[in-house]
Design a protein around this nucleic acid. Structure first.
Lengths: 185, 185
DNA sequence: TTCCTAGAGTTGATGCGTCAACTCCAGGAA
DNA sequence: TTCCTGGAGTTGACGCATCAACTCTAGGAA
């Protein structure tokens, strides 16, 4: 429905160039961090995130919903990730619920060992590839921008979610015509 | 070998917090841009990148290797992406080589149509979600940091690539030179 | 001519990330 | 008690990303 009110002009060449440069720097940085974790610790960034969350949790145990919230990941993403990590022996789903329903995610001994060394390695890499290269002014600028952006886009996301609910929730009608994936002309 | 000289201490809480904030902002931004492209144009960011490269190419035609270089993607990634895009009808692999070997990637009419509207939409979103939110000082700081980072990490990657070759390539005769015509752009 | 090799491109396996659809259970209304 | 509804978690399908292994071919040495 109405592809939004799009700007009708493209970016200036120098704006594109700025954007490309920024995207590229970002990509190189995250790629390098991923590789460092993989090379030195044998775990991925996604695994690292989960391990750290569990590590920091009181009791070293969380539920899927809590992980989902603290990581800001969709629940299904958490679930898939946990399945892979369970297979690798880093975490275990322990039963807890009244009816024996499995809930509650815990670290295994292997998971605990992995996270401890990974934190050191990763911290070192963040320092080496990111923090150390920043001047104080750059740090301030990036911090400010990050905060603004989170505020702004969190809000945008919330609005979109509401829109989505309103569009998909039955009840009313109209324009069911073009759901998202029309594609393929 | 030798997991590098890792820092033996972790980050200060405020450093972690800065890092997390930055990562989160970055993630929200790219997610929003992806969704915008998907919602308004029915294409992914990866598809967009390929379409734009082809669009800008002289003759609107490139080879896999050229795409790989200009996007800074591995060849296999390009190949997989082209397969998906060929299935969706955005590009076509045309034969060219003497022996009828297929080489040469071109846009279809659908691809041309898609890229033209996508550029407008995407440019608008970049402006709305990124450029417009930056103060001049932030712009300068981010640009400077991006450039430094690219320089630094491009160099790191080159070194790692050589290391890897030296480790895996048996025998050999040192420094096969810089096979990779690095850079891009 | 025949064989060898390096480069170009492809394929398969596997992990990450998202969407939509599903299961399971608890708690409340009929 | 029976049904129904909502939250928690899972699953399947599919696209993106990477690594390793493979095919094909052109071009040069034997």
């Amino acid at each position: 429905m109405i592809p939004a009110m799009v700007e009708t002009h493209t970016l200036e060449p120098e704006e594109w160039e700025f954007w490309d440069t920024h995207v590229r720097a970002q990509r190189l940085l995250t790629r390098e961090l991923d590789r460092g974790l993989q090379r030195d610790c044998g775990i991925s960034k996604a695994e690292f995130s989960v391990l750290v969350s569990l590590w920091r949790a009181p009791g070293r145990e969380m539920r899927v919903g809590e992980l989902s919230e603290s990581l800001d990941w969709e629940k299904s993403r958490v679930s898939h990730q946990l399945t892979r990590m369970e297979n690798r022996g880093f975490v275990e789903r322990t039963r807890c619920g009244a009816g024996g329903r499995r809930t509650g995610i815990g670290l295994t001994a292997k998971g605990r060992r992995a996270v401890q060394s990974a934190i050191l390695v990763h911290a070192g890499n963040i320092r080496r590839y990111f923090l150390d290269s920043l001047t104080p002014e750059q740090t301030a600028a990036i911090r400010a921008w990050s905060e603004q952006t989170i505020d702004h886009l969190d809000h945008v996301e919330r609005v979109e979610r509401v829109d989505h609910v309103e569009r998909t929730e039955p009840g009313h009608d109209e324009a069911t015509g073009e759901t998202a994936d029309d594609d393929v002309t």
